[in-house]
Computed example of a mutant assay.
Amino acid sequence: MSTPIFDFLGQRRSAKPDRLAEPGPTPDELRQILKTGARVPDHKKLAPWRFIVFRDEARRTMGEVFAKACETEEREPPSPVRLDMERARFMRAPVVVAVVSSIRNRPGVPEWEQILSAGAVCFNTCLAANALGFGTSWISEWIAYSPSVRAALGLSEKERIAGFIYMGQPMDKPDDRERPDMDKLVTEWPA
């Protein structure tokens, strides 16, 4: 079966963050991407997630947070090369969006469902950006788990980074990768 949406989804690929160039989404495009990204299953309409956007100099400022976190949290002192890499981490793409999973205490809405909703927001945001022609990469890396980075982002005890979504113009078409063998993953019940 071939339809435009199946063709789009069947060809979607993640780009490497350092293969995403300027220009990134404009503020209006980013608003459209995030609004579309938020159209996910959300039991009881809790919106158990939020976005933090990094663009322009905010990416460089956050890089200083990463370098400082690396210095204070690593067992061995990091090399100058490593610190420079951390400072440049968000400079790999024109726009980076953090999706924060924000668990709400609500009877009848399990935490797991809320976490899954945040994951759906991450992927739906990637799809929305891809539909506008932007390349994306959804990754977490060590920074998502760093206590110093969490504090700098103002995350509460019940919040976690679901992922950082890097966006920009793809510099090249990413190679496809081997896909799972569906015959090994799909069963019908009763078996």
Rank of each mutant, 00 (worst) to 15 (best):
M1E: 13
T3P: 00
F6A: 12
R12C: 01
R19S: 12
L20T: 02
T26M: 06
P27Y: 09
D28V: 14
R31E: 15
I33N: 02
T36L: 13
V40Y: 01
H43N: 04
A47S: 15
P48Q: 09
R50W: 07
R50S: 14
R50A: 10
I52K: 10
F54C: 01
R60E: 11
K68I: 11
C70K: 07
R75I: 10
P80W: 14
R82I: 14
E86C: 04
R89N: 11
M91Y: 04
A93F: 00
V95L: 04
V97W: 00
V97K: 01
A98D: 05
A98W: 03
V99I: 15
V100K: 02
S102G: 13
N105M: 12
R106M: 15
L116P: 10
S117W: 09
T125I: 00
A129K: 05
F134T: 02
G135C: 10
A144G: 03
A144W: 00
R150K: 15
A152C: 08
L153Q: 02
L153G: 03
S156R: 11
E157N: 08
R160E: 10
F164Y: 05
I165H: 00
Y166G: 00
Q169I: 11
M171R: 14
D172E: 15
D175L: 13
D176F: 06
E178F: 10
R179A: 10
D183C: 07
T187Q: 10
